[in-house]
Design a protein around this nucleic acid. Structure first.
Lengths: 207, 207
DNA sequence: GTTAAGTTTAACCAACTGGTCAAAGATAGA
DNA sequence: TCTATCTTTGACCAGTTGGTTAAACTTAAC
């Protein structure tokens, strides 16, 4: 027989989708199970039927969202190419990820502070290993080739690149208030900044 | 007659202090008025006697904390001295502020996303004006003197410096998990990074 | 069509939450 | 000492919250 449900998706996915939006917008403490149910168009008891508790539902959401962000973040560093190219490509791609999922940085940073354990054994350490074996290794190589300054530390550079890319989006309300611009002007500014960022880093590390 | 209270401070301050700790640790939604009262060693009704509502108490906390962080952040940029000196002093001083108030960045970023209005008319725009008239002006001057590269945009540089300084502290749980170190190793790393940061920026902007 | 398993619902609950209030206690001036 | 004001408290309250449950509904196999 045909599916007579009001909802084309299966409820498990509908719940996860609605929960993602609510949790990301309001955080774990600010989110309400009833609100998630309303957004999914389902009875609240169903959330518990499929995901037992608010905590378990939250973890399902967080894991999915976190993995998504991580993929968009480290994948570029796992490919073997000249460091300057990696940097340019990263900033270009990562800015788009951040614009698409603009609330994710603050959400993840905040929930991670609330409970640092949610991330435990979420990193398959192979991920870092791969970054080490490609990006970090490449840096050392280009240092020997005289392309990159000797004093550059791969891990620090990695953190610097991340900082420059992510922070402005996390601090968007602060920046817009501080320099007195609206949201669209902010994204214009980020768009213009995109090209300059790679230059900023490369200029700093080149020999 | 002598003060027979168990608490040497006046209750208004005791509440604000306890509220600061709880709000910063758990956020507005996660904080409980009873928990704040317990931490202050006072009756819960007193919180409402002095601060009417949870929202008003939160605003009092946020304002104070925010002003404190802002002072430690922009004061260096308001002084007229060579740009490279400003940058070196800023990183050195700001890292100490961040270590002392290590939970503030995420707290402020998060609450600002929850309700961007809490920061409205909190910036006396004179603050930004002063930064413009000193730091930004100085950059333009040093560009003409051939000390700094022509393509450097003052506002972008300002945001970059902030990003490099603040982000690692906001992302501490992420970084420690990702590279598999504990908290003390993280702060050692930040300590070592401190000197390199100024070099990283200066190297990038010098002509 | 009977049955057994999976799915969905409305009604319900105990615990908790921000907030109130009347009364008790402290304080300082007259 | 009396009194008017300010402080402090315990008890209380209405609304909300995550979570439960028994019963109704669907589905598909026989």
């Amino acid at each position: 027989m045909v599916n007579l449900n009001k909802h084309p998706e299966n409820p498990e996915e509908a719940i996860l989708k609605a929960a993602s939006e609510i949790f990301i917008e309001k955080g774990f403490d600010g989110a309400r199970m009833q609100e998630i149910a309303d957004k999914a168009g389902l009875n609240k008891a169903l959330l518990h039927y499929y995901y037992r508790s608010k905590d378990k539902l939250f973890r399902a959401v967080f894991n999915k969202v976190f993995q998504r962000l991580m993929d968009g973040l480290v994948s570029v560093f796992e490919e073997n190419m000249p460091v300057f190219d990696t940097i340019r490509i990263f900033f270009k791609e990562h800015q788009e990820v951040l614009i698409t999922y603009r609330h994710l940085p603050v959400f993840i940073l905040n929930e991670l502070q609330r409970d640092p354990n949610i991330v435990v054994d979420m990193f398959n350490t192979s991920r870092l290993k791969k970054v080490r074996n490609t990006f970090f290794h490449r840096i050392e190589k280009e240092k020997q080739e005289g392309i990159i300054r000797q004093s550059i530390q791969p891990m620090e550079l990695f953190i610097n690149i991340l900082s420059l890319s992510v922070f402005p989006y996390a601090a968007k309300p602060l920046i817009t208030s501080f320099i007195g611009i609206d949201e669209s002007a902010f994204f214009d500014m980020m768009e213009a900044r995109k090209d300059g960022l790679a230059d900023f880093v490369i200029q700093s590390i080149k020999a």
